Simulated assay, not measured.
Amino acid sequence: MSGEESRKPNKVRIAKCILAHGEISKAEIAARLDLSMPTVFKNVKELMQLGIITDGNEYQSTGGRKAKGLSIADHILYSGGIDITRNHISYVFIDLKGNLLCRKRIRMPYENSFEYYERLHEGFASFLKESGIKSSKILGVGISVPGIIDSQNQLIITSHVLKVSNVSLKNLSQLFEYDVYYENDANSAAIAEFADSGRDAVYVSLSDTVGGCIYINQRIYMGEHYRSAEFGHMNLVRNGAKCYCGKKGCADVYCSARVLSGYADGSLDKFFELLQAREEGAGKIWEKYLEDLAVLVTNLRMVFDCDIILGGYVGGYLKKYIRELNKKAVKYDPFDNDTTYLRTCRYEREASAVGIAMRFNERYFDTLA
């Protein structure tokens, strides 16, 4: 546990401990958080009175006898998540446990106009009605956006994907009756992937552009100018193919989803269908893609020496091919024959929308003192 976590009020720590473990006894909470049993009993009672936690099932505890578990209560509060991409908008709702309850994806090409934001909000209102969730139970709405985001000032500094820069999102915020929070899409997806892990990790987003996130001491490292983890612009091939940023040989040129979808009329699904059918051209492109990806991930492993999670559009397909990637990664890393550090994402769809919604869950638990 980080020093910051240990300094938080006991009620917050206990609630988060229960959240992280799903179900846990009072004795185990006391042991894990180094708290006295009277302190645990007092705070658990208060959390139950608030309706936040509830008794779970009886199970064998570490003390050798059956203990009643505690868990976060269902159907108390919810958070909404919206993911904006170049051509689509995704909506999700999650509960306090972080469970994905419902989702919806609509096609709507992005444009920086008030009419677009109005349609986005109308889509959310319709999704809320379909979900059956009471608006009074919503903690807030998080919105993930591809690009460099100034969350505090609700500003898109720049977005290559959306082809805009210096765009204020305050007009969009004013349409909602809830608190609204903005974050980069890769950071948002990483929040969903890192939830409850307690481990340092690097998240690599393999979408139409290559991005990522660095998660250290249970927080995202943002960098001085909100530009950390721009893995797509690390040089992968000296004097290689030209990247949209103007440099040559960037990882984005070799590891983005476009490398694959470009072979299949812009469809990633179609590319993997061809790959499954053992189509020769798709096989050659995939072999080269995995080779380049292996170089990228082993470079990141050399720098950070922690788990690496592969997500984004391609990450959703990689589980079936992770052994092939592992074999290639070993070739480029003479110091580490164990590739268990390399993992595929657990959210194959809507990770960014789920992750940005989790921001409000975290904020809620932090205010329980």
Rank of each mutant, 00 (worst) to 15 (best):
S2D: 14
E4W: 01
E4A: 12
K8A: 06
A15E: 00
A15R: 06
A20S: 15
H21T: 00
I29E: 04
M37V: 09
F41S: 02
L47A: 02
M48R: 14
Y59V: 07
Q60P: 04
G64K: 07
R65W: 11
A73F: 02
S79T: 12
G98V: 14
L101H: 06
L101D: 09
R107V: 05
N112G: 03
F114T: 14
R119F: 10
G123P: 06
K129P: 05
I133R: 08
I133M: 14
I138Y: 01
I138M: 13
G142P: 05
V145I: 14
G147R: 05
N171E: 14
S173I: 02
E177G: 13
E183K: 11
A189N: 03
D196Q: 15
S197N: 06
V204D: 06
S205F: 09
S205C: 14
D208F: 02
V210W: 03
V210R: 01
G211H: 00
I216D: 03
N217D: 15
N217H: 10
R227D: 12
R227M: 13
A229P: 10
M234N: 13
R238M: 10
R238W: 12
N239T: 03
Y254I: 02
Y254M: 07
S256V: 10
R258S: 11
R258H: 07
V259C: 04
L274E: 08
L275V: 10
L275Y: 07
G283K: 11
G283H: 10
W286K: 07
A294W: 02
N299L: 12
R301T: 04
V303T: 09
D305I: 03
C306L: 07
I308R: 00
I309G: 03
I309L: 13
L310G: 05
L318D: 07
I322Y: 02
R323N: 15
K328S: 07
A329V: 12
V330S: 09
Y332H: 15
D333F: 08
D338H: 07
L342A: 05
R343T: 05
R343V: 08
C345R: 05
A351C: 08
G355E: 00
A357G: 12
M358R: 07
N361G: 09
